[in-house]
């Protein structure tokens, strides 16, 4: 595991880029699916139920 080559060049995606993309995805899912703000909850209500998020 510790011997991962770090010199693969253009074919490797940097860890920083992967982290940015993953973080953005997690934030989107939290805002649209889990945040308990009244306005967000009401707007996303049907989608949260239909996609199996715990809702209210």
């Amino acid at each position: 595991m510790a011997t991962l080559t770090r010199s693969a060049g253009a074919d490797t995606v940097s860890a920083a880029n992967i982290a940015v993309v993953a973080l953005l995805g997690a934030v989107l899912i939290f805002v649209a699916g889990l945040a308990q703000s009244e306005t967000l909850h009401d707007a996303a209500h049907d989608v949260r139920h239909a996609t199996g998020f715990p809702c209210h």
């Binding site: 993953a22 995805g25 997690a26 989107l28 899912i29 649209a32 699916g33 996609t51």
Partner: peptide, 12 residues
């Protein structure tokens, strides 16, 4: 919101 949720899934 469906597009937002799946955009989040797509990013991950």
């Amino acid at each position: 919101f469906s597009m937002l949720v799946y955009a989040g899934y797509g990013l991950l």
